[in-house]
């Protein structure tokens, strides 16, 4: 009878919907924006994204962006824009 409260990763992502999030890709790239949603493959839709490459901002977006899940390494709820 295990009533262990397991923290499921996908639940954490789900709770972040509507909040800001930083998404770290497998390489030196990061995206900061508001999480709109995600799917089973953890493709992610974010709004008003800021794209960082090697900790430098390279582009700001308006509207929604679909980030493909196969390059995503980490998601940080609440977001932490790369700043030195």
């Amino acid at each position: 009878m295990s009533s262990v409260s397991e923290i499921l990763p996908l639940e954490v992502i789900d709770k972040t919907i509507g909040q800001e999030v930083t998404i770290l890709l497998k390489d030196y790239r990061e995206f900061f924006g508001t999480l709109v949603g995600f799917d089973d493959y953890v493709n992610v839709v974010i709004e008003n994204a800021v794209e960082y490459l090697e900790d430098q901002e390279i582009k700001r977006f308006q509207g929604k962006m679909l980030l493909t899940g196969n390059n995503i390494a980490m998601l940080i709820p609440g977001g932490k824009p790369a700043s030195n």
Binding site: V12, K26, N70, M74, G78
Partner: peptide
């Protein structure tokens, strides 16, 4: 320090 994160198993 980046606090609470979700790590993708595929990565």
């Amino acid at each position: 320090k980046i606090g609470l994160v979700v790590i993708r198993g595929t990565a």
